[in-house]
Design a protein around this nucleic acid. Structure first.
Length: 224
DNA sequence: GTCCAGGGCCTAC
DNA sequence: GTAGGCCATGGA
């Protein structure tokens, strides 16, 4: 395990060199990040962009304005992101939570411990571990490593983990092998997504895979 | 036409 | 505790 930390960091820097800084999350405000985190549940980001575009055009991307939307209008706006009945309800629920916690101003949450916020978020209907952690990291800037389908797929392809791991095991593994740095967690997760979107769809990795060297480096260093 | 995508909830066992 | 069904659109 001694060699895992530098190996993971090495993989990060190689990914960074190849893909560049990802500048995540793709959203202008913390509230937009929260909305995106809900809308992207089991959904391609291209569909989420359409729904967010609809919400922007309707002037509904602030907590107060979103809560004023008629439920029917909300469903219509988020429809391109799929599961629109559920997602309209979930957006309303998390927005109500945000208003109750800080009146929509996330700066007011600065003194609330991360674990407290996580526990509160998990009590909101439609917010599970992955969505909660995305909100904590990308909207609130807390040093939490987000484990999602791309993270799991990338780590599996690189050969660092087995898919039988639970969400918590994944997260503990990554956070235990890296310095607790929110900026690093932010961009590393985004690099995994870039890797997954570009090259990790086939399994095993094809010989022509441009990131094969990265994967081989990870395996070699971890086994040394 | 078929498959898949940046989950989570509920129910049955 | 966990496996399976369900929610739904849009692009490849």
């Amino acid at each position: 395990m001694e060699s895992t930390k530098p190996a993971l960091l090495d993989i990060y820097y190689r990914l960074l060199t190849r893909f560049g800084h990802q500048g995540w999350w793709p959203g202008d405000t913390p509230f937009e990040v929260i909305v995106g985190a809900v809308l992207t549940q089991r959904t391609a980001w291209t569909n989420v962009e359409q729904a967010i575009g609809n919400l922007k055009t309707a002037g509904a991307l602030t907590p107060r304005r979103m809560l004023k939307l008629h439920p029917m209008t909300m469903r219509k706006l988020v429809r391109p992101a799929g599961y629109y009945n559920q997602k309209a309800q979930r957006l309303r629920a998390v927005t109500r939570w945000l208003m109750a916690q800080c009146e929509g101003d996330v700066g007011k949450l600065a003194d609330v411990p991360t674990e407290t916020l996580r526990g509160e978020l998990l009590m909101v209907n439609g917010i599970g571990p992955e969505t909660a952690d995305s909100i904590l990291l990308y909207a609130f800037g807390r040093p939490i490593f987000v484990v999602d389908a791309y993270t799991a797929r990338a780590l599996e392809r690189i050969g660092l983990i087995k898919t039988a791991m639970s969400y918590h095991q994944f997260q503990s593994f990554l956070e235990g092998c890296l310095p607790r740095d929110g900026e690093l967690f932010n961009d590393f997760h985004a690099q995994f997504v870039a890797l997954g979107k570009n090259y990790c769809r086939n399994k095993p990795l094809c010989k022509a895979c441009p990131v094969r060297d990265i994967c081989e480096t990870g395996k070699r260093k971890l086994s040394s």
